[in-house]
Computed example of a mutant assay.
Amino acid sequence: MPCDFLVGILKMLDLAFVQELEVFDWFRALSEQSLFATQLGKFCNLHSLKLAYYHWAFTPEGEQSSSYLLSQLSKLVHLRKLYLSYSHLSGHLHQVLSCLQTPLQTLQIHSCTLLVTDVTYLSQSPHAPHLKKLDLSGNNLANTVPGPLEVLLGEAAGTLQHLGLNHCRLKDGHLHTLLPALGHCSRLRSLGLADNPVSRAGLLSLLEHTAGLLELKRVLYPIPVECCTYLHGLSWGPVHQGKLGQVQAEMQKLLRAAQRADMQWSRLLPSPLPLRLVWPE
C-alpha cells in the first residue's frame, strides 16, 4: 500500500479515539517517513504503539526526518506501551525514549541490535522503576552482564511482572550473576529465557533460585547445551530427547521439593507436553 494512500485512510478516521496502533513498516524514503510522522502526533489518546521494521533515520541525511518523528512521539502523553522490533537502534535508544513525556509500563525492544550504552541508558531512565513488562529478546546482552542489565532489573524489581530475555546469548555465568537481581523481582509472573546456551547445571540452579518467587507461574526455559547444538546463539539441530528427559526429571524433582505445583516450565521447540509438576494421588 503506497504511503500516501495509507495517510488518506488515516485522514478519514478520528485519530483521537484510537488507543492502539500497530505499524508493520515498509517506509524507506525519508519523504514517506515524514508523511507518516505528520499523522502520528494526531493520535493524542494512544496507549499502545507497535513499530516493526521501522527504518530509523539517525544518519546525518535523515536527521531532520528522525527529529520530526521524535517530536511527534513526544505528543503521545498517554502512551504506556511501546513495542519496537527488528529495527536498528544501536546507540540511539536514548533518543527514542527520552522524548516520551510519561514513564512506560510495557517496553519491548526485540531484535534491535542494542548496545551496552542503550541498556545503560534504560537502566538509568525514568521508565525503569515503572516497568511491568520488559522484553529485550533477540539482542546480544552478553556484554551487559555484569553491568547495566543487573542494574535495570534492580530498578524494575518493584513493578516487573513479565520479563523476556529469549535468545540473548546468556550463558551460565551471566544467569548466575543475574540471580540476585531476579530474586528481588517478587511480582514476576512470567520469565522467558529460551534459546540461551545454558548448561544443565545452570538450568537447575535457575530453577532452584526462582522457585521462591511465589508469583512466578510460567518459565520459558532454554534447552541445555548438553541436549542440543547452539550455533550463533541459537539452538540448532535435533534435540537429544533422552538427555533432555533426564534433565526434565531432575527439574520435576526440584519443583516437587519446593512445593511449586503451580509453576509451569516449557520450551519453544515442539514438545509432547510442557513440563508441569503432577502430584501423585
Results as ranks from 00 to 15, higher is better:
Asp4Ser: 14
Asp4Glu: 13
Phe5Pro: 05
Val7Ala: 03
Gly8His: 07
Ile9Phe: 13
Leu10His: 04
Met12Cys: 07
Leu13Val: 08
Leu15Tyr: 07
Val18His: 13
Gln19Val: 03
Glu22Pro: 06
Val23Asp: 05
Asp25Glu: 14
Asp25Cys: 14
Arg28Tyr: 15
Ala29Asn: 15
Leu35Val: 09
Leu40Arg: 06
Gly41Glu: 10
Cys44Leu: 15
Asn45Ser: 14
Leu46Arg: 04
His47Met: 11
His47Lys: 13
Ser48Val: 12
Ser48Met: 08
Leu49Trp: 06
Leu51His: 00
Ala52Asn: 06
Ala52Glu: 13
Phe58Gln: 05
Glu61Asp: 12
Gln64Pro: 05
Ser65His: 08
Ser65Asn: 07
Tyr68Asp: 04
Tyr68Gln: 09
Leu70Trp: 12
Leu70Ala: 10
Ser71Thr: 00
Gln72Glu: 03
Ser74Ala: 13
Lys75Met: 03
His78Ile: 02
Tyr83Asn: 07
Tyr83Ile: 00
Leu84Val: 11
Leu84Cys: 11
Ser85Asp: 11
Leu89Met: 07
Ser90Met: 05
Gly91Asp: 01
His92Val: 06
His94Gln: 15
Gln95Cys: 11
Ser98Met: 03
Gln101Tyr: 00
Leu107Pro: 00
Gln108His: 04
His110Asn: 04
Cys112Thr: 11
Cys112Met: 11
Leu114Lys: 02
Leu115Ala: 15
Leu115Gly: 09
Val119Asp: 02
Val119Met: 02
Thr120Gly: 03
Thr120Arg: 15
Thr120Ile: 02
Gln124Pro: 13
Gln124Asp: 14
Gln124His: 15
Ser125Pro: 07
Ser125Arg: 00
Ser125Lys: 01
His127Ser: 08
Ala128Arg: 05
Ala128Ser: 09
His130Cys: 12
Lys133Ala: 07
Leu134His: 01
Leu134Lys: 02
Leu136Arg: 06
Asn139Asp: 02
Asn139Glu: 08
Leu141Pro: 06
Pro146Ala: 06
Glu150Gly: 11
Val151Ile: 14
Leu152Arg: 11
Gly154Lys: 11
Glu155Leu: 13
His162Trp: 09
Leu165Lys: 08
Asn166Val: 07
His167Asn: 12
Leu170Pro: 09
Lys171Asp: 12
His174Val: 08
His174Met: 08
His174Ile: 12
Leu175His: 01
His176Pro: 03
Leu179Phe: 11
Pro180Glu: 04
Gly183Asp: 12
His184Val: 12
Arg187Gly: 01
Leu188Cys: 00
Leu188Asn: 00
Leu188Pro: 03
Arg189Gly: 04
Ser190His: 02
Asp195Ala: 13
Ala201Thr: 12
Ala201Phe: 07
Gly202Thr: 07
Leu206Lys: 05
Thr210Pro: 00
Leu220Ile: 06
Pro222Ala: 06
Glu226Pro: 11
Cys227Ala: 04
Tyr230His: 05
Gly233Trp: 12
Gly237Ile: 04
Pro238Asn: 05
Pro238Ile: 08
Lys243Trp: 14
Leu244Glu: 13
Leu244Met: 15
Val247Trp: 04
Gln248Cys: 10
Gln248Tyr: 01
Gln252Arg: 04
Lys253Asn: 05
Lys253Leu: 05
Leu254Cys: 09
Gln259Asp: 12
Gln259Arg: 14
Arg260Cys: 00
Ala261Leu: 13
Ala261Trp: 14
Met263Asn: 01
Gln264Ile: 08
Trp265Leu: 11
Leu268Lys: 06
Leu269Ala: 14
Pro272Phe: 00
Val278Gly: 02
